[in-house]
Design a protein around this nucleic acid. Structure first.
Length: 1147
RNA sequence: GGGCGCAUAGCUCAGUUGGUUAGAGCGCAGCCCUGAUAAGGCUGAGGUCCCAAGUUCGAGUCUUGGUGCGCCCA
């Protein structure tokens, strides 16, 4: 039998019990085991970093990641869920530095790379307990114990393998890159990190004269006027750039006594800034200036290189630097139209240097000059007053120096956005040239786009919008990081020749001829046996391993010092989670590509990209075709190739469907932040409201890609709006079933019932075929079936929002119409066939609802199942709702027409209540009659059959349907626009006018008699049939009436004695029931009642309705006098007053 | 500065291919119901659908421009 239900349920407590149940019975494992051999549904877990505390945003991701795998499992798929952890990267190092109270790379080196790495490895698990607990508590079923971890040896070796493939294919190369450089920390920052640190700052903005030189190298009377906001870059100047197509002016500054060259359209602006007259003497085009030499403001390099001339590739010679070059990026938005070029400190400037180098014969062109050391301080090539100083501190001194030398033409403050280090917020970043390793992703841009085009993105616009645009502007992936805690770049260089090889595994490394250096690791392990073995593939141990160079006799191969971008780690997860190809080939073959992944939109350029890029370059057709070509070319050389080559997979891969979640904002609409405290800790949410409340809030309130504002109230509201409403229905069923009725579904059924589908229930003697049940039962079963159908359809399309809405709607009609209308059936004493039907129908609705909600609110679903199925049937039923198949809805039970009719019936009832409200007649007071006027009479006959229901619902004696209701109603005839619009087009306004002016009664009569209406429109006859027009009703004033879309309900408000007495009787019943409750009667307790009153109408009412009152209240005796020794309850019926005495009778 | 997205009731959000009187939940106010009862229901107030122009018989919906906000990138 069912256990009693706690109507005062506390969901968080319930959920903890269910978690224990799942674990004790290993339900998750069983849910997987029972789908062994079934079609697969592949899910990838995007690895979170566990070195920070989880917040509500992570709950959202974890909830969505749980929903679809649970759903698919119930649909019969095998869905493995391997957990994963992202463990490398700068954030980890920064955390450790914070603990150590250090900042720069030098300090790390001083502390020791080895202990530093150990700390990093420990630090990544710092909040593991919290993450595991969150995962468990929110009900995210995931194989936590078999998680992949990016620092594990097997993972690292997979990454190495993939890099070796890329290297051997010629897709990994070393180049220079101008990076955003954190000089104090000695590292480049990723674009994402840079983006976090932009702040508004005021920088000096200087206009500097670069005197032009004549052919002989002598100074002329004309200057280039150059603008920059980074004066510290001027000592590293190499060129001045002009736009070739722009018009330049040579202007005379009389005060200065010199001529200046600036963009013509900026003459006025600059004259305004310096408040002088600048007279244009002549103009020329940018191209005319190209090649002219000038004297740079600082001579640190110029003094030695100023006169160096190189051979041009196409013959001739030219000075290598300090001359005017052409560049398309020059604009007149600001500055002077002449741009100072220090290629070391800007990406486009560096490109310009590369272009210049290309014009010369190899080795003859300009070298990069850079007067700044990697620590951000000036070198000896800088002006003497700057040497050894942090560049940004020198801006003022440089400006002062230029002023003293007369080269500073103008100076002002310039307010702009400038990036700072995101962890050390007082450190401005500078752009700085570094050697870096790149992946040639741009070569496969089209392939990535083709792959992307096949991915099902939700929302759709990501594909061609944010993600597609990003791919279309793809640049090569800067892979290397000059840091410590990351996957070491597996490239070893010949110390003599500089030739390189890539290594694909630790074993391969050890097998190299003359390999030495493992003793460093062995020694460390001997000293500290607790060191995880995985560390041996990390710095500093890996750096100690060297081997004989195959390129030069007696030379050694040594590893490059860099580690790689941790985004590469996570992007390699589709194969690296299995250790592929060194191991896990089977799992990889089985679990590639993913059917479903989901992360927030900030992963567009993160995990979504890294996965797609790696996968396209390894497993895409284009990349593999190119690789074969490359191998042919390399065949002559001694190319090493990976033992296992990637095979081609058709797009899309590595994921087919991707839900891009919106970002979750704090309560105040701002980004969630610990310091602002604009959200609550997840654990507190679970303790207060429960995981189901939070999950339902995520799933049912908005499509998942909407950025949602964290709202505690909304989470709280999930409880009464959905969870508790369903709980109340469940409580209702169990309450009656465990009363005198003692209704037990298990009593009549023998043997297994498994999932309690209708086929399994139908063996019960009292179970009638749903088709033979009452209309109300058939209706709710129809609603249930169509809800199942909708939910399945929407979940298959990854649309949790509409699916959840359908479930919520169903629970609402189940509670507010089915149960409401069925109360009497349950309350009736004894069993009838109809009562059995009511039990079975409601039982089946609840059982099915439990299955429906299982992926959404798994705890509540389980609670229902445990009591509705497991409690009565024991091990004859499936032991958990999560082991059931998902209900898809029996379409034969769907009755669209019944559904529509019931809808209309509900509308009539609702209108009747509204009319009562209007007339201030409470429902307890019976009325003699309502009249219902229908605009659409299709369902009239059916509605007439159900007049009883309306009578009961509205407490009236008679219901009458009528169309001839002119006294209550105004009719309006309107055109059906979607139908007539395409047909009549511009004539539509005329028709509308015609219809408004016509007599509606005549039109309707015509329509009824002939089935059509003919009107004359602009001299042309137009025929309208019933579908072409719509009739709207409007209640006339002065009646107790209410109007809806299709009907009007009019009340007869006249009362007679019978009606009044009946109303009083109902008041009496209500007060008696109230007393029953007060004195603690059980549902079926019998009582004795006394009514004391002076009011004649109450006396008459009690006498006239004695039987009614007695049966409603289970009263054995009813007398019109006080009961001795009983506390009475006061009652009021209209103006009449009475006292009700209730005493419980012993059995 | 560029890309993408968003803008509808006090709040959180729906609004299908353009179609008649733009919806839901919460909140607020008033009321009803009373054996699902520490529940439930009804009704109401509250909207220049961000602004402007255009396309169309008809625009919350389509187009263009603008404003504001968010994210990503510089």
């Amino acid at each position: 039998m069912f256990r009693p239900v706690d109507s005062n349920v506390h969901f968080p407590t319930l959920e903890l019990q269910i978690l224990d149940l799942w674990e004790e019975k290993r339900i998750y494992e069983k849910s997987l085991a029972q789908r062994e051999g079934r079609p697969k549904f592949v899910f990838y877990e995007g690895p979170p970093t566990a070195n920070g505390l989880p917040h509500p945003g992570h709950c959202l991701t974890r909830a969505i990641k749980d929903l679809f795998p649970r759903y698919r499992t119930m649909r019969g798929y095998r869905c493995e869920r391997k957990a994963g952890w992202d463990t490398h990267g700068l954030p980890v190092e920064v955390e450790v530095c914070k603990d150590l109270g250090i900042h720069s790379k030098e300090e790390i080196e001083a502390y020791g790379v080895e202990p530093f790495i150990h700390r990093c490895q420990e630090s990544v698990w710092r909040y593991m307990r919290e993450w595991r607990e969150l995962t468990r508590r929110i009900g995210f079923w995931l194989h936590l114990d078999e998680a992949y971890v990016t620092y594990h040896q097997s993972y690292v070796e997979s990454v190495w393998w993939s890099l070796k493939v890329l290297f051997d294919r010629g897709l990994l190369y070393q180049g220079h890159k101008i990076v955003w450089w954190w000089a104090q920390g000695g590292t480049a920052l990723s674009s994402g990190e840079v983006g976090q640190g932009y702040r508004e700052v005021a920088d000096p903005s200087v206009y500097v004269r670069f005197p032009l030189l004549d052919e002989a190298g002598n100074e002329t009377d004309t200057d280039l006027l150059v603008w920059t906001t980074t004066p510290w870059t001027l000592p590293s100047n190499q060129f001045a750039a002009v736009h070739p197509e722009l018009e330049y002016a040579v202007v005379r500054d009389a005060e200065l006594g010199r001529k200046l060259i600036i963009a013509k359209e900026l003459v006025e602006t600059i004259a305004g800034k310096v408040k002088r007259d600048l007279t244009v003497e002549s103009t020329c085009r940018g191209t005319d200036l190209v090649g002219r030499r000038y004297l740079p403001p600082f001579d640190g390099y110029y003094k030695t290189l100023g006169n160096v001339v190189g051979k041009l590739a196409d013959g001739g010679e030219q000075h290598v630097a300090w001359r005017v070059t052409a560049a398309d990026f020059v604009t007149t938005d600001s500055g002077t139209g002449v741009v100072h070029e220090a290629p070391a400190f800007g990406e486009v400037d560096y490109d310009l240097l590369l272009a210049e180098q290309a014009r010369f014969e190899p080795g003859q062109g300009p070298d990069l000059i850079c007067a700044v050391a990697p620590d951000g301080r000036f070198t000896d090539e800088g002006p003497d007053y700057c040497r050894g100083r942090w560049v940004k501190d020198c801006d003022k001194d440089i400006a002062r120096d230029l002023k003293q030398r007369g080269l500073l033409y103008h100076q002002e403050q310039y307010i702009h956005q400038y990036p700072f280090c995101w962890r050390a917020e007082n450190d401005p970043l500078i752009q700085y040239p570094r050697k870096s390793w790149f992946i040639r992703t741009s070569q496969f841009k089209e392939a990535m786009l083709a792959n992307n085009a096949k991915i099902n993105w939700l929302p759709e616009h990501i594909r061609d919008g944010r993600f597609g645009n990003f791919l279309a502007t793809n640049v090569d992936w800067a892979l290397s990081r000059e840091r410590y805690w990351g996957t070491p770049l597996p490239i070893w260089v010949c110390e003599k020749t500089g030739q390189m090889v890539a290594i694909g595994s630790y074993e391969e490394l050890l097998s190299k001829p003359g390999c030495t250096g493992t003793e460093v690791w062995e020694e460390a392990k001997r000293k500290n046996p607790d060191l995880p073995d995985d560390l041996k593939v990390h710095k500093p141990y890996i750096d100690a391993i060297t081997f004989d160079s195959p390129f030069a006799e007696g030379a050694r191969m040594r590893r490059v010092s860099e580690v790689i971008d941790c985004w590469y780690d996570s992007g390699a997860m589709p194969f690296a989670q299995w250790g592929y190809p060194h191991r896990g080939a089977e799992q990889f073959a089985d679990q590639f590509p993913a059917d479903f992944i989901s992360e927030a939109i900030d992963q567009t350029r993160g995990w979504f990209y890294s996965q797609l890029a790696i996968s396209t370059l390894l497993f895409g057709k284009e990349a593999n075709d190119a690789a074969r070509q490359h191998e042919v070319e390399q065949a002559a050389k001694e190319a090493t190739t990976a033992a296992v080559k990637p095979t081609v997979h058709p797009y899309p891969h590595p994921y087919r469907n991707c839900i891009v979640l919106g970002l979750m904002l704090g309560e105040d609409g701002q980004k969630m932040s610990k310091s602002k405290r604009n959200y609550r800790e997840p654990n507190e949410i679970f303790d207060r409201y429960g995981a189901d409340a939070l999950r339902w809030y995520f799933f049912a309130n908005q499509p998942p890609w909407t950025s949602i504002r964290y709202s505690e109230q909304a989470i709280k509201d999930s409880i009464p709006e959905f969870l508790l409403r369903l709980w109340n229905v469940y409580n209702f069923l169990v309450g009656y079933a465990t009363s005198d009725d003692n209704w037990n579904p298990a009593a009549e059924i023998k043997g297994k019932v498994d999932q309690l589908n209708s086929a399994q229930l139908s063996s019960a003697a009292t179970y009638t075929d749903p088709g033979d049940r009452s209309e109300l039962d058939r209706w709710i079963l129809s609603e249930l079936a169509s809800t199942c159908r909708t939910v399945v359809e929407r979940l298959d399309a990854y649309d949790n929002f509409v699916a959840a809405g359908a479930i919520q709607k169903f629970v609402d009609v189940l509670s507010n119409w089915y149960v409401r209308r069925s109360r009497d059936r349950f309350w009736a004493s004894g069993f009838t066939a109809d009562k059995h039907d009511a039990y079975w129908t409601l039982y089946e609705c609840l059982i099915t609802t439990a299955k429906l909600i299982a992926p959404f609110t798994p705890f509540l679903a389980e609670a229902l199942w445990q009591n509705l199925a497991v409690a009565p049937f024991g091990d004859r039923a499936v032991e958990s709702v999560h082991l059931c198949d998902y209900p898809t809805g029996d379409v034969s039970l769907i009755d669209e027409e019944l559904s529509q009719r019931m809808e209309q019936l509900r509308e009539i009832a609702s209108l009747g209540r509204a009319a009562r409200m209007e007339a201030k007649l409470k429902v307890r007071q019976p009325l003699s009659k309502v009249e219902v006027v229908l605009a659409d009479t299709r369902h009239q006959a059916w509605l007439e059959e159900h007049a009883a229901l309306i009578r009961e619902e509205l407490n009236v004696k008679q219901v009458e349907f009528t169309q001839q209701a002119e006294k209550y109603i105004n009719y309006t005839v309107l055109p059906n626009l979607p139908r007539l619009g395409p047909r009549l087009g511009k004539q539509l306004p005329a028709l509308r006018k015609l219809l408004t002016e016509a007599n509606p009664a005549d039109l309707l009569q015509q329509l009824n008699e002939q089935g059509k209406v003919t009107l004359e429109l602009n001299g042309e006859p137009v025929e309208l049939d019933a579908e072409d027009i719509q009739v709207r009703l409007q209640a006339k004033e002065g009646w107790a009436a209410a109007q809806g879309k299709t009907s009007v309900v009019v009340l007869n408000t006249e009362l007679n004695d019978d009606l009044i007495h009946e109303g009083i009787a109902r008041d009496v019943v209500r007060i008696i029931q109230d007393r029953r409750k007060t004195i603690g009667c059980q549902l079926s307790d019998r009582i004795e009642v006394g009514i004391e009153t002076d009011d004649a109408s109450v006396v008459s009412a009690v006498e006239k309705f004695r039987d009614y009152i007695a049966s409603e209240t289970l009263a054995r005796q009813l007398v019109l006098e006080p009961l001795a020794g009983v506390e009475p309850g006061d009652g009021k019926a209209g103006e009449a007053r009475f006292k009700a005495y209730v005493r419980r009778l012993a059995e």
